[in-house]
Nucleic acid binder design. Structure first.
Lengths: 71, 71
DNA sequence: GAAAAAACGAAGCTTAACTCTGTTAAATAC
DNA sequence: GTATTTAACAGAGTTAAGCTTCGTTTTTTC
């Protein structure tokens, strides 16, 4: 199975799209660079815990929901 | 509210205790040091994504369940 | 086919994650 | 009530993941 980073990235991309946000808008709101958002969504790296919190807050979700994906 | 690191640590400690594992046993199984397990449980730091996967695997849980805690 | 959005590459920085060693404190057992 | 085990805690060092910046290419959308 794909790595957690990959699955998380796909999940994030999906959640962002649902909300009609661009990577740039999410980057601004989370105070991350657009490049970081891109890297996270492509599974290049997984965000640190502090950024997990920021991302969930911007998407108005519990952190748990960011990890809600099929096996 | 407590930081995500703190809440995660409390959750991990609880899940480990449920299974009757010591920090040392969890450390061995995840190939982390006992000190890292202790630091994670106390909210000193949050594990990286690769270690999140290992921890979930050892506890026989989905990663999502590690983030299942009250607000 | 222009414009916007995202993928991709490479290189450098920062700092959090992780380790090691050692000491203290708390819990469990005997 | 003291051994033994377990966990908290401190400090110091390493490493590598996360993050950034800049620039280019590809894809999407309009």
């Amino acid at each position: 199975m794909a790595s957690l980073k990959m699955r998380f990235g796909i999940r994030l991309k999906s959640l962002r799209a649902e909300r009609g946000l661009t990577q740039e808008q999410l980057a601004d709101a989370t105070e991350l660079s657009i490049e970081s958002i891109s890297n996270i969504e492509r599974g290049i790296f997984g965000p640190r815990f502090d950024n997990l919190e920021k991302i969930a807050a911007v998407l108005n979700l519990e952190v748990m929901q960011l990890f809600e994906f099929k096996k």
